[in-house]
């Protein structure tokens, strides 16, 4: 649902993910975080931030 909103207003929906892991899966959390940060770095700063600084 959030992804739909973001796409409709022109922010790439990949910026938000939802996943689930239990408290025993520390490695999985780290893996997801790593993946996400890599993706975000690839996408660059959010268009919201760019518009603010202009």
């Amino acid at each position: 649902m959030v992804q739909i909103i973001l796409e409709s207003i022109g922010i790439s929906p990949e910026r938000v993910i939802m996943d689930h892991c239990s408290s025993a899966e520390g490695a999985k959390i780290a893996e997801i975080a790593r993946k996400m940060t890599a993706k975000l770095k690839e996408l660059g700063p959010s268009p919201l931030k760019i518009s603010e600084s202009e």
Partner: peptide, 8 residues
């Protein structure tokens, strides 16, 4: 996406 964001 960029144009849509600008509009928004």
């Amino acid at each position: 996406n960029k144009e849509r964001f600008k509009l928004f």
